[in-house]
Every structure is written in C-alpha cells, then in structure tokens.
Design a protein around this nucleic acid. Structure first.
Lengths: 119, 119
DNA sequence: GTGGTATTTAACGTATATGTTATTTAACCG
DNA sequence: CGGTTAAATAACATATACGTTAAATACCAC
C-alpha cells in the first residue's frame, strides 16, 4: 500500500528513537555516528542507519557527503504539514468541551439572542 | 515494546483511514456503521472496528453505549500533545532557513549589537 | 596497495499491523 | 421465543517494521 505523504511523515515520527534523532538535529548537522552515540547501548549502527532512511524517505532529513561521512540535516517542511493538519482540531482542545458540549453551548447562545429579541 | 503516549498517538494518526474517521467525528458523534460507510467498498466492518480500537487506545476517541450502538466521540487531548510537540520545530519552517543559516543569522545579529556598543 | 574509519546493504528472525471471513455477543422488536 | 441489527471477537493470511550480525562499499592516509 502506497501511503500519502502525511501518513509517511506521521509514521516516521511515531518512533521515539527517530524523534530523538530529530531533536538532536535541531541543534545542527550531525554524522550518523554522532546520531547513533546516545543509543549505542541499545542499538547497533545499522539500526540507526535504517531509522535515518525512514526519516529521509519522509523528507524530514537530508544526508550530504563529506569524505566518508554523511552529515544529516533537519528538514522541517513535513513537520509544517503535521502542524497544519493538527491545527484543524485546535478548537476541540482549546475549549475544554467535547463536540456535543460545543453544540449545546451554541444553542444556549442562540437562546440568549432570542431572549434579547423578546425584550 | 511499550511505547510512550506520543508514539502511540502518532502511530494511530499515521493511517489515512483513521484520520478520515477523526475528521468525520469532528462533525459530531457517529456509530461504527456510520463511520464505516465511506469505506464500505474497500473495507469490512471488523477492519473499521479495529481502527476504532487503535484510536481508542491512543485516547483519540471514546465509545459509549446506546442499545446496540456504540456512538464514538472525538477526544482531542492527544492531538494537543502532537501540536505541542511539533510546535518546538516551528522556527525551522517559519524561516526559510535550515539550522546552519539560523546560526549564521544569530551571529549577524550579535555583530550588530556589538557595532551599536562601539558607537 | 594496505589498513582504518564511516556507513550501507544483505540475510535473517520475530513482532506487530492490517486485512479477510466466519462466529459470537448483545440488544432491540414483533 | 425467534428474527434482525450492531458491533466485537476468533482464526487466519500476509506485509511491514525493527532489530541483529556479517559482509560490502566508499573514502582517507600512509
């Protein structure tokens, strides 16, 4: 199944190791070895390499070439798409109401308007 | 492996069917059958039922009980966590620069400050 | 070329995800 | 009760995800 871009991005972000890698890259470029260092106890290099491939396929990083190193850089464009998507739902958490409550609230407001008219 | 909450949420969101279900629930409560309707050609009821279970485990929906129906409701709290997480990276897409450029930019600002002091 | 370092790819095991059809559970209704 | 509807669960197939170790690739440096 070929996934849409947003799905690919969210899947890439759903792994804590990959999010940690992005967090590290927010501080600037890093080589694969540098990125792997924090996970050395838990994870082998090839595992990290694969995580990077997932991030790259999602467009979240790019890998350059300098001699035998492949410096990685954060590319935030897909994160913007995530932000835009989730933003649609803001109203559902900024108000401490769920959808039904919002509806009932609107009804009350309507009632008040009617009351005013009656006066 | 037991995943952290954010990972569970992002994994739940990484499926387009599940995001479509959330979009539908943004318009208000719906039963499982109602939620399944748009996918009827592609997907069986049990498949939808499982998607709902994934969303429920992520805390993105709740399912109530009314006779033989299980009306589903959107719960946006986990979406807020996603928004908060992604917000950290806003600087990386609002400016059309990557990290190195931001750094260089800061340096220039520092230089200007020094210039001012010199005056 | 030989050796060392950085990284990827190959080959493999195992767990999880996602779908199916058939069966079961639960509640309504005449 | 017996039939219908709504939804979940069971049992199963298959694909993908994620990790490992071992081997290959690419580059530098002497």
């Amino acid at each position: 199944m070929t996934l849409d871009h947003l799905s690919t991005t969210l899947a890439a972000l759903s792994d804590p190791t990959r999010r940690a890698i992005l967090a590290r890259l927010a501080n600037g470029e890093a080589t694969v070895t540098q990125l792997a260092a924090p996970f050395a106890r838990r994870m082998s290099m090839p595992a990290v390499s694969r995580h990077l491939k997932v991030l790259e396929r999602a467009g979240l990083i790019t890998q350059g070439r300098q001699a035998q190193w492949r410096p990685c850089r954060l590319k935030a464009q897909p994160l913007r798409e995530v932000a835009d998507w989730v933003e649609q739902y803001r109203q559902f958490w900024t108000e401490s109401f769920d959808r039904l409550d919002i509806y009932l609230n609107k009804m009350k407001i309507e009632e008040k308007k009617h009351d005013r008219k009656k006066k």
